[in-house]
């Protein structure tokens, strides 16, 4: 916990984050490059799906990140809620758009993958449906921040939305899986299908690591950006008006 406490101070955060951001970006680009190389040129085509399977290396890590970002958002929200620390609120706020983009990427690539597999751009596959609902949860969270001017209040209320969403995600997931099993037979995406070969795992994990570290770099950049925006806003407010004072006769 000591590390987090150290980081919690915005100035100290800035000191650590400033060099960290380009370093993480570089690592993410290298890992992503290597991952893409293996994914596109140095891994086998699937015996059923052919080269289409290569979408997996972009799609699956994006789906992981979609859920991971929501968890980061919910835990940051809980931390901001309990310790009332502004950096936790900022982290929750800026994670949302990043998570929404990963979610959109997962949906988009899932749809691209679905076209040759199902013959349609969309199928009400259990996973796609869950991810679609997750996407709307992200949009609702972002909408709350957009609608409330008072940042402190917005942080608390958005935290409630994030936490309520988070505790509901397993229920939604369970219900959608259940619903899907009522309506259609096992789909291509179902687990326990053909086991993945080691040569496919390598690019998959490289891409996963690239996404994860890339997320770290984006998160740091977004937090720095938000802190800067808030500092500017505070400056303009201080120039605006001072608090009233009181005296009693």
């Amino acid at each position: 916990m000591g590390v987090f406490y150290e980081l919690a101070n915005p100035e100290r955060f800035e000191r650590i984050a400033k060099p960290l951001q380009p370093a993480l970006t570089a690592i993410a680009v290298l890992l992503g490059g290597a991952g893409l190389y293996y994914a596109l040129f140095n891994s086998p085509a699937d015996y059923q799906q052919g080269d289409t399977v290569r979408i997996m290396y972009v799609h699956v890590p994006a789906a992981w990140m979609a859920l991971f970002c929501y968890s980061v958002m919910a835990f940051s929200s809980a931390a901001g809620f309990i310790w009332k620390h502004p950096l936790a609120d900022v982290s929750a706020k800026v994670t949302a758009p990043i998570g929404a983009v990963f979610t959109a990427l997962a949906l988009f690539t899932g749809s691209l993958w679905g076209k040759p597999m199902w013959g349609a751009w969309w199928a009400w596959d259990a996973r796609l449906t869950s991810v679609l609902i997750l996407f709307f949860l992200y949009l609702g969270y972002i909408a709350i921040w957009e609608s409330i001017d008072d940042k402190a209040r917005a942080a608390r209320l958005a935290a409630i939305v994030a936490i309520v969403g988070f505790v509901n995600i397993p229920i939604i997931k369970f219900s959608v899986d259940w619903w899907n099993s009522l309506h259609q037979p096992a789909s291509v995406f179902r687990d326990g299908g053909p086991t993945i070969d080691g040569s496919m795992l390598r690019p998959l994990f490289l891409m996963g690591a690239a996404y994860m570290i890339g997320f770290g770099a984006m998160l740091i950049a977004a937090i720095r950006n938000e802190l800067m925006a808030r500092r500017l806003q505070r400056l303009s407010e201080v120039a605006g008006r001072k608090a009233s004072t009181v005296n009693v006769e």
């Binding site: 609902i133 709307f136 949860l137 949009l139 609702g140 909408a143 709350i144 609608s147 409330i148 209320l157 409630i160 939305v161 309520v164 969403g165 509901n168 229920i171 939604i172 369970f174 219900s175 959608v176």
Partner: peptide, 23 residues
């Protein structure tokens, strides 16, 4: 409760709530 201080919160409430209604 989250949106009670917002004027015309109707659409926002629907956006926040509908995904949670899925189960």
């Amino acid at each position: 409760a989250v949106t009670l201080s917002l004027r015309r919160a109707g659409v926002l409430i629907a956006i926040l709530t509908a995904p949670l209604y899925a189960p």
